[in-house]
Design a protein around this nucleic acid. Sequence first.
DNA 1: ATTTCTGCAAAATTTTTGCAAGAGG
DNA 2: CCTCTTGCAAAAATTTTGCAGAAAT
Lengths: 154, 154
Amino acid sequence: MQYLLYKDLSEEEIENLIKKMIEICKEKGIKVTTQRILIFKELAKKTKEHPAAEDIYEALKDKVYGLSLSTVYRALNTFESLGLVRRIPTADGKAHFEIANEPHGHFICQRCGKVKDIESAHLNNLLKEEVKKQGFNPTECNFVCYGLCKECSN
Amino acid sequence: MQYLLYKDLSEEEIENLIKKMIEICKEKGIKVTTQRILIFKELAKKTKEHPAAEDIYEALKDKVYGLSLSTVYRALNTFESLGLVRRIPTADGKAHFEIANEPHGHFICQRCGKVKDIESAHLNNLLKEEVKKQGFNPTECNFVCYGLCKECSN
DNA sequence: ATTTCTGCAAAATTTTTGCAAGAGG
DNA sequence: CCTCTTGCAAAAATTTTGCAGAAAT
């Protein structure tokens, strides 16, 4: 049961995430709009790729009549503050996003900028403990590695 | 000898870093200008604070006649590509910088956005090994933690 | 001398916001 | 209905760039 994060989410997992998202929205009085559902779903499909807002917009703009980039930003910000989505600040000057699943690390390619997941539950726990020892009170710990991805090493 | 990172660099350490920077610039045919020296020095003084380009600009603009923000950006980019300075992408939409000293983690406050260092040499080594096992070839690994800093928890 | 760098202003990029019209509960 | 959301355009914010003059080697 390791390295689960390398797998795309199944259709079923995506549907379940959407249900959870709808539930949480209703709970908080946030309206469940077509745009929000489709944006969330698109991110869920691509979570392994850690898309930027623009990527999601590009994927949806022909499917959702009149969709605007600002709606994508607004939806992602909303999901982030609900804890459903995580923002990954990268060195390319754009914010990238992923579904907030179990914590894990990110490997960022210094040439092509792609972000890949690193399985790290064990290390994340170690890290959290150590950080607490040093007097912080973390809600979330991640790690980031830089280097060349397989494709770019050739 | 732990938690060294919490200390500001001493005058002497800063002077040594500057010497090293000058050496590397000369080696690479990069010119040693007043602006570059002062920008590097200002970052060295503030490295614990992880300033953004603008912070460095603000600190220097009255001391360096006519200094412009773009020069600060250009200098920081140059230093980064020389491996002298590290860029820390944060969630506030600005790039922050630090002197590229020994690898360590960062704690980012979710309320005030301040970035603090976490001593983590041991964990960084563990991490690098684990990441290699997973098939990556990292040049550098860092930790990032989110939470509320001491000041903001009150 | 030659090359590189700086300052300025302008451009490019990413993200946010104001507002009127539209959709959700 | 009332509130929240969207789309659009405009604004804001951060970072990069072109170019002429200045500085470094």
